[in-house]
């Protein structure tokens, strides 16, 4: 999406918002300027940073666990045979129901918050890496083997670059999920984070502050998405122009 179109879209949305605010004239829908003012007052920064920290660490943990395991399952039938049934049954279970268990294991702090987000985001990444690595062109692998390459070289030069675009697609979907879960886990046992800021402002009937925190959460999601999108563009360069 070009910058021009992005700005135009934002402008139209703000216009609709402003129109609606003028139309209904209620404190629970403040005008965009009032919300902007609340954001510029500061104070949101530490919530934004804390939330970013939680979600970025969670995504990192999910990637580091799920990608190697997924690729291993995709490339090694004997590993797949052992783990496949477990994935099959766990995949459809909403992992958020494990929250009490995660809290008991990891306490009420950031550790449990990161644990539950990464657990949830791991599954789609695991399945995407597993399925993508299964369809790597055998000719590429044979080429490496004929040049005397070992397992690590094949992973580095073939399996990872061939599957990376699919992994990044799963990550893009995972970002949306991770922000949703972030809101949920920031609703208890913390006084920092955008989720908490939204609920706190809501409780204090500080509607501009509430919308400000919501906008910051949206900004966090969009920012992460843009970063992954950039990596994805690079990773797919070899596939040709879109």
């Amino acid at each position: 999406m070009s910058t021009k179109r992005a700005l135009l879209t934002i402008g139209v949305l703000l216009g609709l918002w402003k129109g609606l605010a003028l139309l209904i004239q209620q404190p629970y829908l403040p005008s965009p300027e009032a919300v902007l003012e609340a954001i510029l007052k500061g104070g949101l920064w530490r919530h934004f940073l804390r939330s970013s920290f939680r979600v970025v660490v969670s995504l990192g943990v999910a990637l580091q666990g799920a990608v190697p395991l997924g690729l291993l399952m995709g490339r090694r039938p004997e590993v797949d045979r052992v783990l496949r049934p477990a994935i099959y049954f766990l995949y459809p279970v909403p992992k958020i129901v494990f929250l009490p268990v995660v809290l008991l294991l990891f306490g009420l702090g950031d550790l449990s918050k990161v644990a539950i987000i990464s657990l949830i985001v791991s599954f789609p990444i695991l399945v995407a890496s597993r399925d993508a690595s299964r369809w790597v062109d055998p000719e590429w692998i044979l080429t490496l083997r004929s040049l005397g390459a070992g397992g690590w070289d094949i992973f580095r030069h073939v399996v990872l670059p061939a599957t990376l675009p699919h992994i990044l697609t799963a990550l893009k979907i995972g970002i949306g999920t991770s922000i949703a879960v972030l809101f949920f886990v920031e609703s208890y046992a913390t006084e920092e984070g955008l989720g908490w800021a939204i609920l706190d402002a809501w409780g204090r009937l500080d509607y501009p502050g509430m919308y400000g925190a919501m906008a910051a959460m949206a900004g966090l999601g969009v920012g992460l998405y843009l970063v992954v999108e950039m990596a994805d563009k690079r990773a797919r360069r070899w596939m040709g122009p879109e």
């Binding site: 000719e139 080429t143 040049l147 005397g148 070289d153 030069h157 596939m239």
Partner: peptide, 29 residues
């Protein structure tokens, strides 16, 4: 073995590597 080279039906070029990187793949290994 190094002394035996094979060329596959579709060339087996790695699509994410440049021509140079493909040609020198064995050497970089």
């Amino acid at each position: 073995r190094e002394e035996i080279a094979i060329i596959f039906q579709h060339g087996g070029l790695l699509p994410w590597k440049t021509v140079m990187e493909n040609v020198t793949l064995g050497l970089s290994l």
